[in-house]
Amino acid sequence: MARQAPVTIERIERAMDEVALAIDMAGDRGTIYLPIYERLERELQECRAKQTTLSSVRARLERLSA
């Protein structure tokens, strides 16, 4: 089984760019892709929230070790 690349903010944003282009190219029928774009938006928010939490954890650990 092939290993999948990790989900990153950069990968999500690239996917959002591609879906946005697909929506634009499809014209009025582009709304069919909106659920995909909305899912990517949620995934991006979750990924950013995790990074914020990890930054908080790292800052706390630095304070503990000081």
Rank of each mutant, 00 (worst) to 15 (best):
A49K: 06
Q4K: 10
G30D: 03
I36T: 06
A2V: 11
A66M: 08
I9G: 11
R48Q: 14
E46C: 00
E38Y: 06
I32H: 07
Y37T: 09
L54A: 01
I36R: 13
I32G: 02
M1T: 12
L44W: 01
L40T: 03
E43K: 14
V19Q: 08
Q51P: 04
R29D: 13
I32Q: 06
L34K: 09
D24P: 01
R11T: 02
E43S: 04
A59L: 03
Y37P: 02
L64P: 03
R42I: 07
A49W: 04
Q45W: 10
R48W: 05
E10D: 15
A15D: 09
R63P: 01
L64Y: 06
R58N: 13
R60W: 12
A49R: 12
A20Q: 15
M1G: 08
V7I: 08
L44Y: 04
R29A: 14
I12W: 08
E41W: 06
M1N: 09
S55E: 14
I12Q: 06
E13F: 08
R60D: 10
A2Q: 13
A49L: 09
I32E: 05
E13I: 11
D24V: 10
I9K: 14
L21I: 13
M16H: 10
L44F: 01
L61F: 00
V7P: 04
G27Y: 01
R14D: 13
G30T: 01
R39D: 07
S65C: 06
D17M: 15
M16C: 07
R29Y: 08
A22Y: 00
I23H: 00
D17F: 12
E13P: 04
A2F: 11
A5I: 04
A66W: 08
A49D: 12
S55C: 08
I36S: 06
R39A: 02
Q4M: 05
V19A: 05
A59Q: 08
L54Q: 12
L44M: 00
A49Q: 10
I32C: 00
A66H: 06
R29P: 05
D24T: 15
M16D: 09
R63V: 01
S55P: 01
Y33C: 05
L61M: 06
R14L: 11
Q51R: 12
T52A: 15
T31I: 12
C47Y: 10
I9P: 04
A66D: 09
T53V: 03
L40D: 03
D24M: 14
E13T: 14
R39E: 13
